[in-house]
Simulated assay, not measured.
Amino acid sequence: MLYRELNVPQHHTLRHRKLKSGEVIHTTANTGIILVESNESMQTAIARADQAMYQGKQQGRNQVVFA
């Protein structure tokens, strides 16, 4: 996959936040990354990035998907 070629780790460990109350908040993120084509509208590009993000959500937490 492209993330290997770009040397981007597939999974990222995000920080856990501890509130004053002692409660810990765990954060996850999925990211969809695209290369915008020169003849592509911004609306289409955003839709592709959104689709890539949801593909990452289907694969699990903390995913980076290139489309």
Rank of each mutant, 00 (worst) to 15 (best):
A67S: 09
T28S: 12
H26L: 15
Q63S: 07
E40R: 01
V8L: 10
N62T: 07
T28R: 04
E23M: 14
H26W: 08
R61H: 04
V65Y: 01
Q55G: 09
K57R: 13
N62Q: 08
Q10W: 07
I33C: 11
A45T: 10
I34V: 01
E5F: 06
Q43Y: 04
K18P: 00
R15E: 15
G56C: 03
A29L: 12
E5H: 11
G22T: 11
M1W: 02
N30M: 03
E37T: 11
R15C: 15
I25T: 13
V36Q: 12
L6M: 05
D50G: 03
K18D: 09
R61G: 00
G56N: 00
K20W: 10
A52S: 15
A47H: 12
N30S: 15
A67H: 05
V24R: 09
Q59K: 15
A29V: 15
T28G: 06
A47R: 13
I34K: 02
T31Q: 03
Q10T: 10
S21N: 11
I34N: 00
A49K: 08
A47N: 13
I25Q: 11
M53K: 12
V65T: 03
R48E: 01
E40Q: 11
L35Q: 11
H11V: 12
S38A: 12
Y3A: 09
N7Y: 01
G60N: 04
T27M: 14
I25E: 08
V65Q: 00
E40G: 07
V65S: 03
T27R: 06
L14M: 08
N39C: 05
R17V: 15
T28Q: 06
A29R: 01
S38Y: 08
Y54A: 00
K20I: 14
G22A: 07
H26N: 15
F66W: 06
P9D: 14
T27L: 15
M53S: 10
G60Q: 11
N39L: 05
A29T: 04
A45F: 04
G60C: 11
H11A: 15
A49R: 06
L35A: 10
L35P: 02
E37H: 09
K57P: 04
K20R: 11
L35I: 14
S41K: 04
Q58C: 14
T31H: 01
R48S: 01
V65D: 01
K57G: 07
E5T: 12
H16C: 14
H11P: 03
I34P: 00
M53W: 11
M42Q: 06
L6V: 09
E40A: 05
R15W: 10
Q55C: 10
G32R: 02
T44D: 06
R17G: 09
M42A: 10
R15G: 15
I25G: 09
K57S: 06
R4E: 05
E23V: 14
Q59N: 12
T28F: 03
R48H: 07
T13E: 13
V64R: 00
Q51L: 09
M42H: 05
F66H: 03
K18T: 14
H26C: 12
R61V: 12
